[in-house]
């Protein structure tokens, strides 16, 4: 189990974080993370190192999330509302360290299509390179570029009523 500890310590936070940002809530992030590590340990022997360990693991996270999201869409038993855009009259900021910009972006992300949200999360939140994203998604670099391009335009469009939040130049 020594391998497990090392591997877990290195990737656990990233797996959970990526799952959280793709799924949008903690319960799902936990379920997905468990499933991901089960898959990792089933397939660790089969992992040939043809790609980096990191992107291999992110690929498992991405595929597991997309499978789950797709499964839910097909089921459509009850349509769960995606989080709506944030209202302006917030009264308990002091407790939540409310950051208008973060909230607006967080909510806007879940209005994007799942595959577009995925590229934004991997590029802008996780900071992966275009090449790494292409490796995770198993698609050509051009596809990453066009998908990210569309995703950013859509995200900006969703946020257009909140643009004053993004006007001030800061570090």
């Amino acid at each position: 189990m020594a391998d497990f500890d090392a591997l877990f310590d290195e990737y656990s936070d990233k797996v959970y974080g990526l799952a959280y940002r793709l799924m949008g809530n903690r319960d799902d992030a936990m379920d997905i993370s468990q499933e991901v590590f089960v898959k990792i340990f089933r397939n660790l022997k089969a992992f040939k190192g043809e790609s980096a360990m990191a992107t291999w693991i992110y690929r498992i996270v991405y595929n597991t999330c997309m499978d789950e999201l797709r499964r839910r869409k097909i089921k459509q038993v009850s349509i769960v509302d995606k989080p709506d855009l944030v209202d302006d009259n917030i009264s308990v900021e002091e407790i939540y360290e409310a950051d208008e910009r973060k909230k607006a972006v967080h909510n806007a992300l879940y209005k994007l299509d799942d595959d577009q949200r995925a590229v934004i999360v991997m590029r802008d939140i996780q900071g992966l390179s275009y090449e790494e994203i292409a490796d995770v998604l198993q698609c050509p670099l051009g596809t990453v570029k066009s998908r990210l391009s569309r995703a950013r335009l859509n995200l900006k469009e969703i946020l257009k009523d909140y643009m004053e939040l993004f006007d001030e130049v800061d570090v």
Partner: peptide, 14 residues
């Protein structure tokens, strides 16, 4: 700035 705000979101602790 939108990209920077995304980066600010970060990953939550498990």
């Amino acid at each position: 700035n939108i990209a920077a705000a995304c980066k600010d979101l970060g990953f939550p602790a498990p």
